[in-house]
Design a protein around this nucleic acid. Structure first.
Lengths: 226, 226
DNA sequence: GTCCAAGCGGACGATTGCGTCCACTTGAGA
DNA sequence: TCTCAAGTGGACGCAATCGTCCGCTTGGAC
């Protein structure tokens, strides 16, 4: 951290440039949270109080901007994995990991979309990081299974399934997070070996308005991924 | 059905108009499946072999088109609820219901997006249908709980949570459905009172490439909701 | 066969977002 | 203080999509 800022400070980068870069990142997070990850670049620029050109100079593609904006959240995820491995109780670590990542997804609006968008990038790039993450998580899973708390047929890929599903849920429902908590609780319980009768968080206020009950049922307005 | 087609046939609607309407619906399903629900209207028109104006005449808004295109799927969902209620074993009915709806979401590409889009429409319209669906489903839940198979703290709103999460998953991963089946199995197990040791479907081939492991980790291309 | 209203198609103007170009400004080293 | 390269902003050209308008075509009643 100190390291990082010192490098930045003496990078030969002009002070105003560095300041603008930071302003853009703050604005990007705000705008992505408000209008979704597809918000116009110009909106971000205006919010940051800089011109479009400045924005494009710092982040040549929308992707770079998204990556920059959520770098901190990414780091938090990475740290969560490390901490999970360090936990003496592997199940505890596993649970913490899932809960931390899901909390991040639910709290930082815009992040879930970024998270989901990260997926298609199946190929090559940054493979070493990914491989380390996979190896670490697999280790965690094995330990938790050995401790008897995690069901034996849990497969590491199930984490991806769970996180993507959760991601979709919070994206569809930018609410107070009740639904998210409920889903996480259900999933964690189904991953456990024994029922582990911890009570669920309170149910959501959702109605079944989503359930298509008739041909001419409420199909609703497509909301443009607000 | 016969009723419906007879009405259509003698509706004073010209034969070519009726034919075109049908062609548009077929094309819409195909295009939505291929390019997502946000595909340009012109693409649908071209695919249907009609002009844009014809498309707009039959379906004045994109929403109307989506509704029209997936009306059949909506009906299937509605029927599933009726059948679930009719099942002598309420848990069996419950399980069938969830599986049917999820199978539909995973098989008819484009439908999940339509399903999710249906949500924001919280207000008023078609309230009677929705209320009936809610009442019926609540009845099913109560019966399944009384039979001892469905956990006592399951709340009807949890169906919405589960379906939206599943929706998000299949939208994010247009794969062969392995992930979807896995999620559904996990969820159903966590809804059951006893562990009900039915084996899970095989794990997916997903890697953890979605897991952000470092600041500059693979963030990936935003794929335009292909 | 004749007729005409219902139906049709595609051109069109408007709107929105993208990313670049270029003339102006400014931080900071000498 | 002076200088100039690094940095900046917004105008601009381009492309995609929307939804409408209007002149042509055709189904089907008589």
């Amino acid at each position: 951290m100190t390291e990082a800022s010192r490098i930045t400070a003496r990078d030969g980068v002009r002070a105003d440039a560095r300041r603008n870069r930071e302003r853009v990142l703050v604005a990007a997070r705000a705008v992505f949270a408000e209008h979704g990850i597809d918000a116009p670049m110009a909106t971000v620029a205006r919010r940051a109080g800089v011109g479009v050109a400045t924005l494009y100079r710092h982040f040549p593609t929308r992707d770079a901007l998204v990556r920059g904006a959520f770098a901190q959240q990414m780091e938090t995820c990475a740290r969560a994995l490390t901490e999970a491995l360090a936990d003496p109780d592997p199940w505890q670590g596993f649970q913490q990991l899932v809960e931390t990542v899901c909390a991040l997804q639910r709290e930082e609006r815009g992040f879930p979309a970024a998270f989901a968008a990260a997926f298609p990038d199946s190929t090559s790039e940054h493979a070493p990081y990914r491989q380390r993450a996979e190896r670490d998580f697999t280790t965690l899973v094995r330990r938790a299974q050995a401790s008897g708390a995690l069901r034996a047929d849990f497969h590491p890929s199930d984490l991806a399934v769970a996180l993507l599903a959760h991601c979709g849920l919070v994206t569809a429902l930018p609410d107070d997070g009740a639904a998210s908590r409920r889903l996480v609780a259900y999933l964690l319980q189904s991953f456990r070996t024994d029922p582990a009768n911890k009570p669920l968080p309170p149910p959501t206020a959702l109605t079944l308005r989503s359930f298509p009950i008739a041909t001419d049922s409420p199909q609703g307005q497509r909301s443009s991924r607000a």
